[in-house]
Amino acid sequence: MSENAIELQSVEKHYRGFTALGGVDLTIERGEMLALLGHNGAGKTTLMKILLGLTRVSAGRVRVLEQPPATSGAVALRAHIGFLPENVVFAGGMTGREILHMFARLKGQPRASADSLLERVGLAGAADGPVRTYSKGMRQRLGLAQALIGSPRLLLLDEPTTGLDPTLRQAFYAILADMQHEGTTILISSHVLTELETRTDRIAIMNRGKLAACNTLDGLYREAGLPVRVRVEVDGADTAARVAQGPECVLTHSDRRVELAIAPADKLATIRRLSQMEDHRIRDLQVFTPSLDAVYDHFGSVRSTSV
């Protein structure tokens, strides 16, 4: 038995006159949490639809929990998948509890499991009101609850935290962490970068239907090779000139301050060089590592040509 929950090999999806996916290779191991980043229209939702068997691929090979998802035999496969669509909508007149009971029946799970999920996402109090009165955050929580029915082996979450306030977002990720702990594989698409940084095992960045990068956060930084900025506060023009004399690229240079751009590999050498200067000459030294936003911009920006 393979250890991969999802395998995509050269997957292409063409719509009439439009390529949604142009050859995507991606493997997600069991129990892994992978973030899928990308601008709108990068192909994130198309990818999820393919994994759910809602859309067929134009070319390439797809395996979800070792099965091809878009065949008639894949109906049973979907019993093991939980899905939260972007902007989840429920039939307006039903109450949250009724909706969750219905979904539980569709997955062959007892009603009690639906009730306990309502509690888990903090909706137990509002469960008997019609969903049309729900706030965005409540709908999103109901959406998560339905995705969790039957403890799925694979969770596909399409921009799940949009519209959630920070507290709810924390709770949301706490639940996901629990699920991952139980061995669930999680694929989560988002364009909120900072909240994903610390929570996911790997980050895949999509750009115009292609996978621009897929790595751990550290790996992405290395791959991007974005320069580290070092800002040096000095005591005067004299020192500033000496600082600027080094092999580094000088970004700004004034009598009081010099900013350098350094390749990540040369960072230590530069700091060593600066620290050898007399103490009082250098007043302060700040190191700015590139933010995830910068990394994302590098790989995933629409105007990026590095792909």
């Binding site: 639809k49 759910l52 809602l54 008639s72 109906v75 049973a76 496969l77 979907r78 019993a79 998948i81 899905f83 669509p85 902007n87 989840v88 909508v89 429920f90 039939a91 979904f103 569709l106 997955k107 062959g108 339905q146």
Partner: peptide, 13 residues
């Protein structure tokens, strides 16, 4: 409405 996509993501043919 988008309810069809969610429904068909369930084990329903």
């Amino acid at each position: 409405d988008g309810t069809l996509m969610l429904l068909l993501a369930y084990p329903v043919s």
